[in-house]
Design a protein around this nucleic acid. Sequence first.
RNA 1: GGGUCUGUAGCUCAGGUGGUUAGAGCGCACGCCUGAUAAGCGUGAGGUCCCUGGUUCGACUCCAGGCAGGCCCA
Length: 1036
Amino acid sequence: MALRKLEGDPKAREEAVLALWAERDVFRRSLAERRGGPRYVFYEGPPTANGRPHIGHLLARLQKDLFPRYKTMRGFYVPRKAGWDCHGLPVELEVEKELGISTKAEIERYGVEAFVERCKASVQRYIGAWEAMIRRLGFWIDLEHPYVTYSDDYIETLWWELKEIHKGGLLYPGHKILPYCPRCGTSLSSHEVAQGYDRVADPSVYVRMPLAEDPQVSFLVWTTTPWTLPANVALAVHPRETYAEVDFEGERLILARGRVGAVLGEGARLLREFPGSELVGRRYLPLYPLAQGERAYTVVGAEFVSMEEGTGIVHIAPAFGEEDHELGKSQELPFLQPVDRAGRFTDAFPLARGEFVKDADPKIIADLKARGRLFRAETIEHDYPFCWRCDTPLLYYAMESWFIATTRAKGEILAQAETIAWYPEHVGSGRFADFLASLRDWALSRDRYWGTPLPVWTCGSCGALEVVGSREELVARAADPDLARKVELHRPYIDRVELRCPCGGKMRRLPYVLDTWFDSGSMHTAQWHYPFENEDEFRASYPADFISEGLDQTRGWFYTLLVTGVLLHGKAPYRNVLVTGMGLDAQGQKMSKSRGNVLDPMPIVEAHGADAVRWYLASESAPWNERRYSEEGVRQARYGFLETVRNCHDFLTLYAGIDGFTPDTPVPAPAARPALDRWLLSRLGEAVEGVTAALDAYDPLGATRAISAFVDDLSNWYIRLSRPRFWGEGLTEDKLAAYGTLYEALRTLALLLAPFTPFLAEALWQSLRRDGDPDSVHLARWPDPPPRDPALGASMARVRAVASLALGARNLAKVKVRQPLPALHVLRRPGDEAVPGELWDLVKAEVNVREVALVDDLGPFRVPKVSPEFRVLGPRHGPKAPRIAAALARMDPAAVATALARDGRVSLPDEGVALLPDEVKVGWEPREGFALVEDRDGAVALDLRIDAELQAEGDLRELVHRLQLLRKEAGFAVTDRIELGYAGDLGELFLRFGDRIRDEVLAVRLEAGPLDGADHGAELAVHGRTGRVWLKRVGG
RNA sequence: GGGUCUGUAGCUCAGGUGGUUAGAGCGCACGCCUGAUAAGCGUGAGGUCCCUGGUUCGACUCCAGGCAGGCCCA
């Protein structure tokens, strides 16, 4: 094995790693080699295959890769089956767009069979885009054997599930007011509705409903949906609230007393008040007398009437509101439906016949105004639900639907929800718990084409009903068993299968398909085609240890997964959920296809590499925080972190190549190595422990911080200080210790990075691994932490602080580090005795001083400095203050300071006063020839007295530095030997330090005068000495 | 309207059982260093820790109310 530099271009490096993984079949082996070990169960939440992936998808995707990789390295067997959510309205919508159509009638005309085939093709296309992204980013999941929700096997499991649910008595048909999209022609589930709320301006309309018995008096009624007024059949009041009849600008109105001020303001005069119950049973004159019957247009009592908004008198249209519908049933009100399935008024309402209801609002308002029934019309901003895919305003509409009675299993669902650990915790205890608390029955059926068919057949003769739970059952009951054996379990094919009813009649399938959330929410079972196959797999993988998806899945997949899991298996289907935050654009807006502000990750990946994107996502913030994505962040991850890691590695390879060091070269035992090495190994132990603990706690941010801190110490302290150790000739013990330490650090770092930046980790590993090591880092075991040495860590921290202070002092004095100085005096602190001399030597080298001395007193290096405190002096001494100040300035500052400290006062004999401590500022200034720096980390005095020898040494270092730059300029390799020619005043330095110059710049010969055939030359000036040098490569 | 999260430097974000002088990275200025680095080091500028009130000897931290943004719900 040979250490070799890493490919610097991320794209090329990562593509090579992808090829290596493919060639060595690493992902499959990472599973195979762990089979039989403890299982860590992961469930893939299937992406909806109806759109291209964007950067917002990557955050959850990263968690779904990172933790399985980590657990694999910890010895777990972590199978990961990919999955695709293929059914549903979104897919149909894509196809409609392709075809340029938009209604169900058009689909029927086009042909359901052809339409459904196009849905399949569309899904395939998007799956391809997702697979490409997943592969390129190094997200390991089994794409060869995914679960696909539209496959017959998957559907068969769903049928089995529904039959089980039906057996439990929890599947039922009902009529309910449901949110309904008139464009899509189907009702929506509550979690779909939740996706589509938007703030809009709607009419806010008050109308008069005159009492039948006294048309001079009107009920005042408020609504934001004027189009529902034609369907009005009753008014509702709260029987136990107080109502009032008022005079308002000469008109008599009835409304809730508590709403008078808010609705009418100051101008209303109270005529009388009475309980709402008194109004119940009164009749009123309808706006549009479309309803028939004894109970039409009467006032009824209802507890739900709110006193928070409106007038406290609610207009009731049973066709358009859930509460209205319930009330209509209990009060035996007539049912009026003047709107068709497309959301247009029927002939029953001629005024706006054929118009979409929302568009008819202005016409209705104008009509009411013309007839004197409009009291007031305004607009109001509120949130209204729109179809989450096509943006059509939803209507609440009385529909037939099939339901799962989740409310009947609520207790069990809540109990099982308690067993789930959420990251962050508040999602589980907050929004998820809230949602479960207001659980409603699951409206499961959809009036559409591309979906799992509802397996319910009914008999045309006797009305009997059959739920089919498998293909075998279907064949057994089918009128044409051959057809049933072969038929694809999709519309329109499945609709051709008729069953034989025991009554002798024919049974036909109800034409519904399922809510796609039932598809994805059932993956825990259906991905295995259980119970028809794979019983062992199913049992071994229920429940999941880990799932991770975006926050928006709280009421989506997290919910449906739980419900189906509890109903079918009596147990929560997952133990740990890591919730990721939503992706926002640079303006802080949610990224979504409909807003058109999505950021395509692939160009960024191509430019900076998948690792940079992955590290950026993992290290920027906690996973559950929402993110503002920017390419700049990815750039920083690349240059600020990944490049540093690469350079640390390449530093090792550079010198390892020169010295012939290999991973198998024997090195001294850790205990026998210098303190700097032992310190780094201790830091490495700290890093391994930190990363491990963080990942065990589902805290990837904490893990990346521990890694970053270690890399910083490695690069900017360990390697920085160790460089000279690599420069000498031959493999000394010290050099071997440095190689061994650096090697160990990088090798362990590769392991720690493997879950986060799998490509770079692999590239490192391929360079660093020993014979006998696994041939991929992803087949290796997670590292055990090297032992820690806290005392050494504390010593190093102290020494680094001192070096920092000393460099600060140099800065202050404006003396370059290249110029050696005689001494650094360090004010002693408790514990300094325990700091090894080796570490103080590091300070010597870093600060470039001949000596580091601990002192107990900075007195010798500084002198007191006193000055008057005019703020205090002025008020106390008035006009004498300037004379006092002048007198103070004439005195010996040291004497003043001493007196103040000793006596608490200092006498000024000339002025006849004594100054108190608060009247004199006492500071310090460095004694001539010293620089002082003091802060909470300590205090140092830097001796700046440069003698001739130090000066010469400084000049030498300056000269060597210049020569090194020239070598670099000339393009020589680090190991090239050269000849050097020189002329001018500089000659003195060459004569005096010839040997050292030769060593430092690898010169085999020094020549006074020009060199023939020199490769490079330059004028130089070092401290007033000028001259010229020539460089020539030897034997090149 | 309700729930929940977020609000800390120009930007992206840490942090703190309530306690001297609130941090990092990036960016900026000046200086340094550089025989690994598109790097590094030092210094500096840059902060009402969203606002108001309360509790407290002491609040950026705890409590209450509000404001702004995100998500979820109605």
